[in-house]
Computed example of a mutant assay.
Amino acid sequence: MSTSTAPSSASSDADSLNHDENPIKAVIFDYGEVMWMQSRNVHVYRKIEEDNKLFDNSLIPTLVSKELSSILPKGFQEDLLTGIYTAKDFDRLFLSAYNRKFGSQVESLKFFSATEYDNDAVYEEAVLTACQKLRERGVKTILMLDTYHVDEKRNGRRIPNMEKYFDHVIESCKEGVKKPDPRFYQIALDCVDVQPEEVIYIDDSKINCESAAVLGIRYIQVFNSMDMLEDLQEILGFDLD
């Protein structure tokens, strides 16, 4: 199997689950590497580079560069994802790092704040279909995002079309907490009024999964979507395709 599940009280062993006494009422999904895979969305980065007349294959190297890390304020990522900074704030710093790294003189750049490219994103269709099937069965679906405010209006990220698949979209920047803070998971539980044992949490991060398990939430750690969906179907006892 390519998925991992929580032990003991957070176990996802289908044989131990009594659907009458302890039904699953909600499934919480992470976004990155669950709904959206970076490897399948390289074309979006390429389009931003092309539209801004940047060097080919230059955005991702800048993201992990010493030029960027050296100018980000201490704790910037945490503060970005909990709503203190915005994507526009990040883009200003990123532009400075980009020009320093490549010796360029780019005057303006929308990267994290470039929501106009959101409709070009490619999602895991099998996972989206599963979300629709869950909702048809009366199981609440929640998208739990570590994300940022796009601009000074501070309206969050607002990824388009997610309302087709999720009953609730919870954004860290609006709540002021991010994963793996247990308070973020509790917000998700409260929004659908369920107990931890009535929920399955799905994420590719071991740390995030373990934080959910501390609250008594079953989890499936994702290594690929096919195995994750097989495990989810086994727990639920019905097909999702």
Rank of each mutant, 00 (worst) to 15 (best):
Val106Cys: 04
Phe102Met: 04
Leu63Tyr: 03
Glu33Cys: 15
Leu63Asn: 02
Ser70Trp: 08
Val34Thr: 09
Glu67Ile: 04
Asn99Cys: 12
His43Leu: 14
Asn41Lys: 11
Ile24Leu: 15
Ser58Gln: 01
Tyr31Pro: 05
Gln77Ala: 15
Leu63Met: 13
Tyr98Glu: 02
Asp51Trp: 13
Lys66Gln: 11
Val42Gln: 06
Pro61Tyr: 01
His43Arg: 10
Gln105Met: 14
Ile24Val: 14
Leu80Glu: 00
Ile48Arg: 01
His43Gly: 09
Glu33Thr: 12
Ala26Arg: 03
Met35Ser: 08
Leu81Arg: 01
Lys66Ala: 13
Tyr98Asp: 02
Ser108Lys: 11
Tyr45Cys: 13
Ser113Leu: 05
Asn41Leu: 13
Met35Glu: 03
Ile71Gly: 11
Gly32Tyr: 07
Gln38Ile: 13
Phe55Tyr: 08
Glu50Phe: 14
Gly32Asp: 04
Glu107Phe: 13
Arg40Lys: 15
Val106Thr: 04
Gln105Trp: 10
Val64Ala: 07
Phe111Val: 00
Asp91Ala: 11
Ile71Glu: 06
Arg40Trp: 11
Gly83Val: 00
Met35Ala: 12
Asp89Lys: 01
Val106Met: 04
Pro73Ser: 07
Asn22Val: 11
Thr82Val: 10
Phe90Gln: 02
Tyr85Ala: 03
Gln77Ile: 15
Glu21Arg: 15
Asp89Val: 07
Val27Tyr: 02
Lys66Glu: 06
Lys25Ala: 09
Ser58Val: 01
Gly103Trp: 03
Asn41Gln: 09
Gln105Asn: 14
Phe94Gln: 00
Ala114Arg: 02
Gly32Phe: 11
Ala87Ser: 08
Arg92Asn: 12
Asp91Met: 09
Asp30Thr: 09
His19Phe: 13
Thr82Ala: 06
Ile24Lys: 02
Ser104Thr: 13
Leu68Gln: 00
Pro23Val: 04
Tyr98Val: 02
Lys88Gln: 10
Asp89His: 08
Ile48Leu: 11
Gly75Tyr: 05
Leu81Tyr: 04
Met37Pro: 03
Leu63Val: 08
Asn99Gly: 09
Ser70Gly: 09
Val34His: 03
Ile84Ser: 07
Asp20Pro: 15
Phe29Tyr: 03
Lys53Leu: 14
Phe111Leu: 06
Phe111Glu: 02
Val34Phe: 07
Ser69Thr: 14
Lys88Leu: 14
Thr86Lys: 02
Phe55Glu: 04
Gly75Pro: 01
Leu54Phe: 03
Val34Tyr: 01
Val42Met: 12
Glu33Leu: 15
Leu93Met: 10
Ile84Asp: 01
Ile28Glu: 02
Arg40Glu: 08
Phe111Ala: 00
Ser69Asn: 13
Arg92Phe: 15
Asn99Thr: 08
Phe94Gly: 01
Asp20Phe: 15
Phe112Leu: 12
Ala97Asn: 06
Ala87Gly: 05
Ser39Phe: 13
Ile28Asn: 02
Met35Cys: 14
Val42Asn: 06
Arg100Glu: 08
Lys101Glu: 04
Pro23Tyr: 07
Glu78Asn: 15
Glu49Gly: 05
Tyr31Asn: 10
Lys74Ile: 13
Glu107Gln: 12
Asp56Arg: 14
Phe90Trp: 07
Glu49Phe: 04
Tyr45Gly: 04
Ala97Gln: 03
Lys66Asn: 12
Phe29Trp: 05
Gly83Cys: 07
Asp89Cys: 12
Leu81Val: 09
Val64Leu: 12
Ile24His: 00
Gln38Phe: 14
Asp91Thr: 07
Glu50Gln: 14
Phe94Ile: 00
Ser96Phe: 11
Ser58Pro: 01
